[in-house]
Every structure is written in C-alpha cells, then in structure tokens.
Design a protein around this nucleic acid. Structure first.
Lengths: 128, 128
DNA sequence: TATATATGTTAGGCAAGACTAACATATGTA
DNA sequence: TACATATGTTAGTCTTGCCTAACATATATA
C-alpha cells in the first residue's frame, strides 16, 4: 500500500495532532492542511477503508497500528531530509522544512538511505 | 506564469527533442512521457494558448522564445539538482537523475540558489 | 497517383482531490 | 435541559490530467 502526496499529508497531520492531543479532530486537520471539512471527511473515509485510521461516524480520529507505522515513516523521512538540507546546503530550518515537505513524497528509498548515511558520517564529524 | 509538474515535463521533453531533431513531434512526446497522443494534443493547445510553443493544426511543434527560456530553466534546475545529489550523496547518475526529475518541480528558489553555491564551492575544491 | 500507414484531433469519459451549500449531530453553557 | 455554537457529513460541482474509440490528415511507397 503506497499513498500519494495528498493522503500522506493527511496521515502526517494526524500523527502530529495525536502527539499533541492524543487524537485528531477533523476540523483541526482541515485547518492545518488548509482544506475544507468535507475534504477531510472524504480522506478519512478512504484512510479508514484502508485500515489506517479508526473512526466512528461523527467520532474522533486515531491512527491504527498500520497508520501509525506509515505516518511515522513519512515523518521520519521528512525530518531526515530537513536535516540533510540544513547540513549540506546550510538552509535555515524553516526553508529546509518547507522543501522537505515536498521532497518527502517523491524521493527514492536509495536516496533516503544515502541521506541516512550522510547524516551518520556528519554526526561523527560533530564528535571531533 | 508558473506551470505545474505535468506542463513542465511537456516543456522539458520538447526541449530535448528539439535539441536532437530541431523540432518535436507529438508522437515522440507521447512516447517519451508515456502518455497518449490526445493527451499531448491537449497539452500542446494549452502551451500554445499561453505562448510557449508554435504549432499549426497537424503541424510540428517548436518552442517560442518564452517556451525556450522556461524549459531551459527547468532543465538547468534538473541538471543542478542531479549534480548536487551525485556530489553530496554519492548517488549514481541514473539514481540522481530519477530523483532530480521529481525534485525539479517542487524545490524553492532559495534552495536552488543554495545548490548553485554548493556546486561552485565544490568546483573550487576540484581545482586543488 | 492511389492507397496504406503514421500521425494528429475530436468527442466523451473517468478518477482524484478539491470546493460550496445544506443538513446532521455533538457539545458546552445559560 | 434547552438551545446556540462547533463539528462532521452528504450531495453536487469543478478542474486537472489522464484515457479509449473514432475520425481526419499527412506522408511514404507500390
């Protein structure tokens, strides 16, 4: 199961809301992503059908185990890319985040692995 | 005037075909981008309406000055990103190109400038 | 030059992902 | 507890970008 950018952004947003409040409200997702409430409803139904979120009609939204794994993976990718851009290009945090947010949906696993390696070796440098 | 990924890919493809054959045929664009002929026709009409290509009905396609500038800019971005990925992550050419092809449509101008700076300093290193 | 093949266009349709308007339900507070 | 407000859903629409089928034109060659 591989989602597109749109669904990945919904999942990532739910993850962040859960971490802050223990659960996600549709209206908060809508605000964060700057989409309408009906768009959130539709997306949540798709995520639910595919087993990524738990949700009753008119109820709050939580990630399933599967959904948690997936969204953590995306968020981890996001963080790694952001650090990579900061370190290799000297981008400011906000600029790195902005670009990472787009890149996280499109880069290959080979590139992601290379970023991990890059950051590990940079970490070593930091210890000198 | 800012195009989306789809139109940018059409423009980039036309540029490459023009460089190889002096002009682009719809059928070749379709093959390169793996889309149908009608999709190309539609895209070409949009590009023509916006002054990016010259084309008569049933005629061949060439870039206008505006179209040439735009597509060269995208292609240049593509090349810079690809080099950056090769140098900073050690990606192989084909892997770098694959990722650059996605990234070229989404990165910010600030990031692109940072890549240019990065590559310039790397060039200097090469001369030691 | 007549005809087969290659190329380009038109018409119509589909799916994704967004929207608004209207309606349904939940929640908090007087 | 009743009602106002907040939140969620349904229905219907729009745009983008793609598709296939059918048709139109151009090109090449017998």
């Amino acid at each position: 199961m591989k989602f597109n950018e749109s669904m990945e952004m919904y999942l990532e947003t739910i993850l962040l809301l859960e971490e802050n409040h223990g659960h996600a409200h549709g209206v908060d997702i809508a605000k964060k992503l700057r989409v309408s409430k009906p768009s959130v409803t539709k997306a949540m139904n798709i995520l639910k059908e595919n087993g990524f979120v738990n949700k009753e009609t008119y109820g709050t939204i939580t990630l399933t185990k599967k959904g948690l794994e997936y969204s953590k993976k995306i968020y981890s990718t996001h963080t790694l890319i952001s650090k990579y851009l900061e370190k290799s290009l000297g981008l400011k945090r906000i600029e790195a985040t902005k670009n990472a947010c787009k890149m996280e949906h499109v880069i290959s696993t080979v590139m992601l692995d290379a970023i991990k390696t890059y950051l590990e070796s940079e970490d070593k440098d930091d210890n000198y």
